[in-house]
Amino acid sequence: MESTVRPGMSVREQVTLPNLITVARIGLAVAFGLLLVRSVDGWAIAVLFVAGASDFLDGYLARRLGQTSALGRVLDPAADRLLTAVVILGLAWRDIIPWWLVALLLARDLVMGAALLWWRRRGTATPQVTFLGKSATFALYVFLPLSYLAYGRWDGVHTFAIVAAAISSIAYWGSAVQYLAQLRKSRSAAPLGA
């Protein structure tokens, strides 16, 4: 299906169902954080599940309905990063995951954030989401909540979830390498002086 991303799209054209779902995910990330720090674990897990499902639903609908937009290409990864940050900081604060895993994941997002700002100032387009990036994010959405569910109940499952999340974080860094390669390629393909 042909993309609907066009220069100069109006605000109304960018208010699409996928973008509304993405905005809802931002609200769900905040709700999850509040529930987590208050130890309302059942509701926190339910909210996290809905937030994780929304990440895949908005992308699917954007492609299926031909409602991709410049706003969506910025909003979706921003919502992903916010949700990831709230989850890992909240779980570490509750001593459910180790702080070294938090550092590994946040460092990746800081590197990507700095790279995107640097390239954006030079007129380079936002990189396309990759399969590895979505897969790594999905894996983190599975294993981090699993560590939450298993903590204090099933030590073996909790350990497995931490190890699997660590492996997923390596894939998460691999997706960063792909995005940086896209940015570099996009920049080198731009006309001189652009």
Rank of each mutant, 00 (worst) to 15 (best):
M1I: 14
E2V: 15
S3W: 13
S3H: 11
G8Q: 12
G8C: 06
S10P: 07
S10K: 07
S10R: 08
V11H: 10
V11M: 14
Q14W: 11
T16A: 10
L17S: 05
N19L: 12
V23R: 01
A24Q: 00
R25S: 01
G27W: 06
L28C: 09
A29M: 07
F32Y: 11
F32A: 02
L34I: 15
L35Q: 02
L36G: 01
L36V: 13
V37Q: 07
S39P: 00
D41E: 13
D41R: 12
I45M: 07
V47Q: 00
V47F: 00
S54E: 00
F56L: 05
F56W: 15
F56E: 04
D58T: 02
G59W: 11
A62N: 08
L65C: 10
L65D: 06
L65I: 13
Q67M: 13
T68F: 04
S69H: 06
A70E: 11
A70Y: 09
L71F: 14
G72E: 02
G72H: 01
G72S: 02
R73E: 10
R73H: 05
D76S: 09
P77E: 01
P77Y: 06
A78Y: 06
D80M: 08
D80S: 05
R81E: 09
A85C: 12
V86F: 10
V87G: 05
I88E: 01
W93S: 08
R94P: 03
P98N: 10
P98E: 09
W99C: 04
V102K: 01
V102L: 14
L106T: 06
L106E: 01
D109K: 09
L110P: 01
L110N: 00
V111G: 01
G113Y: 06
G113M: 03
G113Q: 05
A114G: 13
A115S: 12
A115W: 10
L116D: 01
L116C: 07
L116E: 07
L116W: 08
L117Q: 08
L117V: 15
W118K: 05
W119K: 03
R121L: 11
R121Q: 14
T126S: 06
Q128S: 10
V129C: 00
F131R: 11
A136S: 10
A139H: 05
L140Y: 00
Y141V: 11
V142I: 15
F143T: 07
F143L: 03
P145D: 01
S147L: 08
Y148T: 04
Y148D: 03
Y148I: 07
Y151V: 13
Y151F: 15
G152P: 09
W154T: 04
G156Q: 11
A161R: 02
A161N: 06
A161P: 07
A164G: 02
A166G: 14
I170D: 00
Y172I: 04
Y172H: 05
W173D: 06
G174S: 12
G174K: 09
G174L: 15
G174H: 10
S175Y: 03
V177A: 13
Q178G: 04
Q178E: 15
L180F: 13
A181Y: 10
A181F: 12
A181T: 15
L183Y: 04
R184W: 13
K185L: 11
S188T: 14
A189V: 07
A189K: 08
A189G: 02
A190P: 07
P191S: 08
A194Q: 09
A194E: 08
